[in-house]
Amino acid sequence: MDTTTPSAITTGDGVRIGYRLDGEPDRPVLVLANSIGTDLHMWDGQVPALSDHFRLLRYDARGHGTSDVPSGPYSLDRLGRDVVELLDALDLPRVHVLGLSLGGMVAQWLGIHAPDRVDRLVLANTAAYLGPPDQWDRPIADLLAAPDMRATAEVFLHNWFPARMLQDEVVEGFRRTLLATRREGVAGSWAAVRDYDLRRTATLIRSPTLVIAGEHDTVTSAGHGQELAAIIPGARYTEMPVMHLTNVERPAEFVDAVVEFLSERP
């Protein structure tokens, strides 16, 4: 497996976006888009299996990991354009996109607003809408007023993983990432979730799409996944007995579903 060192681009609004490429250059490119509170390493466990089939492009969303952390609210439009600018900088005209949670929202945006850049979509543990918007105002204000990320990190972990996994080493890695993430990045990303609504426009997605949901997900429920699959023309739906980070809780089943879908002939 050919692996590049992490690198970065600078977007049109002056924000540094860190990224990493893994896998052989002659394979189809699969972009991996992250959830809030994680960085590109949330996919580490899937890289060996996925890179047998794809050239993987992972990136840190603005506000996370090695990317810059601009203050103030972010928008889904800006998060989507970050990916388009990354594809442009790397001269990647057309890719598959796999996004989980906020990454799945960004993937939907790409399918709607940059359809010529997207071959197939996998939308995992995500939704077309997570309203009402005002439910996000208090968490954003409380986080920005908090002394650090400790309390928020524990809420995230309890929403992401079943109790039996909370002391696992893999979860400790996610805890460390959360504690190292700046509050402004999480709050800015929450604002993007607060302000988005793709329930009408997701019907414009024409890329073949697989929606993956978690039976026990309390962040983006199975109902959200079913609604999304019903909105997108021809979308397939699969549900797994998991919480929010399906790729971590059921990695083998997750990878199998992704590879099977993305490798189908038209």
Rank of each mutant, 00 (worst) to 15 (best):
M1E: 14
T3K: 09
T3H: 09
T5F: 09
A8Q: 13
T11F: 02
V15N: 07
R20D: 06
R20F: 01
L21Y: 11
D22I: 10
D26Q: 14
D26G: 12
R27L: 14
P28I: 12
V31T: 02
V31F: 00
A33T: 08
A33Y: 01
A33D: 04
N34T: 09
I36E: 01
D39C: 11
L40D: 04
V47P: 00
S51W: 07
D52P: 01
R58K: 07
H64R: 01
G65T: 12
S67P: 05
S67Y: 06
P73Q: 10
P73I: 10
R78K: 08
D82Y: 02
E85M: 14
L87G: 08
A89W: 05
D91Y: 04
L92P: 01
H96C: 04
V97C: 01
G103Q: 04
V106I: 15
Q108M: 10
W109R: 13
D119N: 03
R120W: 03
A127G: 06
A128C: 09
A128M: 11
A128F: 05
Y129M: 07
L130N: 06
L130H: 10
D142F: 15
L143T: 02
A146V: 13
P147I: 04
D148A: 13
M149A: 05
R150F: 15
F156M: 12
M165Y: 05
D168M: 06
E169S: 01
E169A: 08
G173M: 04
F174P: 08
R175Y: 10
L178V: 13
L179V: 14
L179G: 15
A187I: 11
Y196W: 08
D197N: 14
R199M: 07
R199D: 00
A202S: 09
A202M: 01
T203E: 03
L204R: 00
S207D: 02
T209M: 03
V211S: 05
V211I: 05
H216W: 05
V219Q: 06
S221L: 07
S221I: 01
H224E: 11
H224R: 04
G225D: 11
Q226T: 15
Q226E: 13
A235N: 10
R236C: 11
Y237K: 04
P241K: 04
V242W: 07
L245Q: 06
E249Q: 12
R250M: 11
P251N: 08
E253W: 15
E253T: 12
V258T: 08
V258E: 07
L262K: 02
R265D: 02
P266D: 04
